[in-house]
């Protein structure tokens, strides 16, 4: 495929979501080639090494270059991302830099083959981030909680190369309800959710200086919340009955310092 042809895919399907696809069918036909985000990324990475997708970031401004219409934003996970922005946004950017307050940036992100955000090619909007704002893309998981938990239904006994128990539907429903309540009710970043071999559901949040996890044991209706500071000798651990405390109790633990907010 020539670069010119491949380049046309840069704009085609850029706003597709994970659950959407385009059927490229001939006139009068309903079946044809399927084109989704994965296919688009593959085409673009093979032709130009990177791909573009809409991006929504929250962070603090660390550098500005007015002459180059650009600035650098530092995200919650300490990544520094260069951003190009037009002049009308510069006032907001300089203000954020001076006050050390967070901004929300949406625009066109450029990603490498591994899905790592390299830069924002052009900001479409820059605004002051509000308390409780969570970036819709990253740093939280891009897959909704219920979808992540639901995917565990497919794990059968021995799913971990012979180890690992199958998950009970009611247990997963309990875990999904609890975690969704926590995340939505307290504006937390969407956690990454994993199974454990003994049948628990484990939610994890990565923060710049903390690793935070909540392990939900549905059989005992027990939740264990744990936070480990990466740069200091500090660990918080607490087990409690999720039956009594419910989503609000677990959320209280996560909302304490260290926060799991995105």
């Amino acid at each position: 495929m020539s670069p010119a042809v491949a380049g046309r895919f840069s704009s085609f399907g850029r706003t597709l979501r994970d659950d959407e696809l385009v059927v490229v069918a001939g006139a009068g036909q309903r079946e044809g080639a399927l084109y989704d985000r994965r296919v688009r990324r593959t085409i673009l990475v093979r032709s130009q090494g990177t791909y573009e997708e809409d991006v929504d970031l929250i962070g603090v401004v660390r550098e500005t270059d007015v002459d180059q219409d650009s600035f650098e934003i530092r995200l919650a996970d300490d990544r520094r991302i260069p951003v190009r922005a037009s002049r009308p946004f510069l006032k907001q950017i300089v203000q954020s830099l001076q006050r050390d307050t967070a901004v929300r940036v949406s625009g066109t992100g450029v990603y490498d083959a591994e899905g790592k955000l390299l830069r924002v090619a052009q900001a479409a909007d820059v605004s002051a981030a509000e308390e409780g704002d969570v970036a819709s893309g990253r740093p939280g998981c891009r897959i909704p909680v219920d979808e992540q938990v639901d995917s565990l239904k497919g794990l059968t006994d021995g799913w971990l190369d012979g180890d690992g128990r199958a998950f009970d539907g009611a247990a997963l429903a309990w875990s999904a309800k609890l975690l969704t309540g926590i995340v939505n009710g307290f504006d937390l970043a969407t956690p990454h959710i994993y199974p454990t071999p003994d049948g628990s559901v484990r939610a994890e949040w990565s923060r710049p200086r903390w690793e935070i996890s909540a392990e939900l044991d549905s059989s005992r209706k027990l939740s264990e919340v744990r936070a480990v500071r990466l740069d200091a000798n500090e660990v918080h651990e607490r087990s409690f009955s999720a039956r009594r405390a419910g989503a609000r109790g677990v959320a209280r633990e996560l909302s304490r310092k260290p926060t799991a907010r995105g």
């Binding site: 897959i143 190369d161 180890d163 990454h192 994993y194 484990r202």
Partner: peptide
């Protein structure tokens, strides 16, 4: 693969299994 979610590797991946 079950310990990779949205490109992030979970801590379970670095825990020994019973096996």
């Amino acid at each position: 693969p079950v310990f990779v979610r949205d490109g992030r590797v979970g801590s379970q991946a670095f825990r020994p299994t019973p096996k």
